[in-house]
Write a protein that binds this DNA or RNA. Structure first.
Length: 598
RNA sequence: GCACCCGUAGCUCAGCUGGAUAGAGUGCUGCCCUCCGAAGGCAGAGGUCGAAGGUUCGAAUCCUUCCGGGUGCGCCA
């Protein structure tokens, strides 16, 4: 939602004062390892790519841990401990490092000086929601294609998850320094839009007082009634009692446009806006499909042949047919795939090839498609197409979105298009709100099924992750409000200049450590195209913050508002930092932060 | 038959592209409000990471083979 200026911002932040404590310490470790190499303690020319600086699993081990000694032991021909000891001595000389202990099989556990964490808080306040933005993407052009629902009706819940994941992923990638385009591929070239046209025509007849004949296979939904009315308004009675050949094309275009209008509205209600809408139909008759196929043919990947029937269960009506095929088996697919039907017309795969060719030609470095899990069989052939057409320059990552199971009162909400009981995206948003829909849809990895429990998501307890995170943010704002009422200056500038040496308790350090993980988390999530990690991170941050808050009940010195204004400001600086990161994270998820719970 | 995805605490799920004694929530047991919002927090119990092999300093994570569940498999997109 706030991604418009993202790529420019990332470039700006890139460089010197981009704060990422883990990255900084890794740089330090690498520098010291290089020094050890030039001193002859380590053999020269070691590959340091595998050296990682990570949060230790157990916080008791310290603030950060590096595996350097273990990954280098073998290539260096030395004992891990010997490397770790030598490295520890050098690292201790850095003012940020308070301790470096060798542990376990050769981990080097680092404890940082409180001042390092204080610097982090100052940085969060100085950079605001820019804290955590990354230059990882280096402005590379990435295209995220998602939703792409057929323009034949309103969006329903099955589309919602893909829409949310795609949009949050786009936000995430923009935040991580990619130049992102959100794109919707309109499937307006196939038989289903003819069905739409015929269905709408019946509603048009209905608008003229005739009784509609919704034959088997047509779309029965009420949402087409206004389309019928609009057709009447536009065409009067000129289409009545005419054969399909007189009206099909016009009605199809008109109805498709209205459906897309409705879908745009549905997306907007969910907070999604696309940068580009591409039309399948627009590929026909322009030579683009032919050109794409010819390009593949020139690589020897197109031929005429006959497919074997699938082993195991052969379809009843199977008969061998000669078709134009794409050699996707050359890329690991199970079988070659037809691009032309036996009558010579294109299969749905052909325009898809042209569409992906088009994306490659537009200069994208990376393509990401968000598909429903029922498209799993489609993945290999599309990847094959992209790598063939781009000479392996462009990568295609396909995220398959598993089903959403709706639960209400402990019961599964059965959805049937025919029975008209499917739940539309609008219904869902009207009932629980777009923020809840978005957050909950991001609390699972894309490739596992998701239960969406109406009762839980509207509940105000920590069962409900949306509420839990929002509550943390509300508490942050509550503190700021109280402080202002007490006449304290809590502007970010003032807080950033506070004497943060007042922060040092273990519970406070826990929160600071978690804040320190944010930029690292962004990069991990962006590298894997996994926006759900942001949701989980926010939950953890909220948890650490709630814990700190409650410590104040037992220990007065941990309360945020103290007698001494300077001490208060230091504490509030930390509180405010938590709010900044929560807002940044919610921004990526596309969820509106609430300042007060109601 | 083949391909892809999933299998982690009673239940719902995380798990950083191979790291340390596998973590949350929920449920169960016991605690914490004169208090910055208890709509919260703390502690305890609870595991053969579906199974068996393999790769190496080291595997829930990578490889192989099984078992169980889901999805898909030429003129629908």
């Amino acid at each position: 939602m706030t991604s418009a200026g993202a790529s420019g911002m990332a470039l700006e932040v890139r460089g010197c004062d981009q704060m990422n404590l883990f990255a900084d310490i890794r740089e330090l470790v690498v520098a010291e390892l290089q020094a050890l190499m030039s001193d002859g303690v380590l053999p020269a020319g070691l590959d340091l790519a595998g050296v990682a600086v990570e949060p230790p699993r157990d916080a008791g081990h310290g603030d950060m841990a590096t595996n350097a000694a273990m990954v280098l032991a073998k290539p260096a021909g030395l004992q891990p401990r010997a490397i770790a000891d030598a490295l520890a001595v050098r690292l201790m000389e850095d003012p940020r490092v308070a301790g470096a202990d060798v542990a376990g099989p050769g981990f080097l556990n680092l404890r940082l000086e409180p001042a390092a964490w204080h610097g982090l808080v100052r940085d969060v306040l100085a950079q605001g929601e820019g804290y955590g933005r990354s230059a990882l993407g280096q402005g590379r052009k990435v295209n995220v294609e998602f939703v792409s629902a057929n323009p034949t009706g309103p969006m329903h819940v099955a589309h919602a998850r893909g829409a949310v994941v795609g949009d949050a992923l786009a936000n995430l990638l923009a935040y991580a320094g990619f130049n992102v385009t959100r794109e919707y591929y309109i499937n307006d070239g196939g038989g289903q839009v003819d069905v739409l046209a015929r269905s709408a025509y019946e509603r048009y007849r209905e608008a003229h007082g005739l009784s509609p004949e919704i034959a088997e296979g047509l779309y029965p939904g009420d949402y087409l009634i206004p389309v019928g009315e609009a057709l009447k308004a536009k065409f009067g009675d000129s289409l009545l009692d005419k054969g399909e050949q007189y009206w099909l094309a016009d009605v199809r275009e008109f109805a498709t446009d209205m459906m897309m209008e409705m879908i745009r509205g549905d997306l907007a209600a969910l907070g999604v806006s696309m940068d580009v809408y591409s039309s399948e139909k627009a590929l026909y008759g322009t030579g683009q499909i032919e050109a794409a196929i010819e390009t593949l043919r020139s690589k020897g990947l197109i031929y005429t042949g006959t497919l074997e029937p699938p082993k195991g269960k052969t379809p009843e009506d199977w008969e061998p047919r000669e078709q134009t095929l794409f050699r996707s088996t050359a890329f690991g697919d199970d079988q070659d795939r037809p691009v032309q039907k036996s009558d010579g017309s294109w299969t749905y795969f052909a325009p898809d090839i042209a569409y992906h060719y088009n994306k490659v030609m537009r200069g994208f470095d990376e393509l990401i498609n968000i598909f429903g899990a029922d498209h799993s069989g489609y993945v290999k052939r599309l990847k094959a197409v992209v790598s063939a057409l781009s000479e392996n320059r462009v990568t295609l990552d396909i995220k398959l979105i598993q089903l959403v199971k709706l639960l209400k009162g402990g019961q599964i909400v059965k959805m049937s298009k025919r029975a008209g009981t499917f739940v539309t995206l609008r219904d869902l948003i009207d009932e629980v709100g777009a923020d809840v829909v978005r957050f909950v849809m991001l609390t699972r990895k894309n490739d596992v099924a998701l239960d969406f429990d109406f009762d839980k998501v509207t509940e105000q307890s920590k069962d409900n992750p949306v509420f839990y995170v929002q509550y943390a943010n509300a508490r942050v704002n509550s503190i700021l409000r109280k402080a202002r009422e007490a006449g304290l200056d809590v502007s970010d500038a003032t807080l950033g200049a506070a004497h943060l040496t007042h922060l040092g308790h273990a519970a406070e350090l826990d929160v600071m450590r978690k804040l320190g993980e944010w930029p690292r988390m962004v990069e991990i999530a962006a590298r894997g195209n996994e926006p759900h990690r942001v949701a989980f991170y926010l939950y953890e941050l909220a948890s650490d913050f709630h814990a700190l808050w409650n410590r104040g009940n037992d220990d007065d010195s941990l309360r945020f508002l103290q007698e001494d204004a300077g001490v208060s400001q230091a504490k509030i600086a930390l509180v405010r930092s938590v709010g900044v990161v929560i807002c940044a994270g919610l921004g990526i998820l596309g969820v509106t932060p609430v300042e007060e719970m109601r």
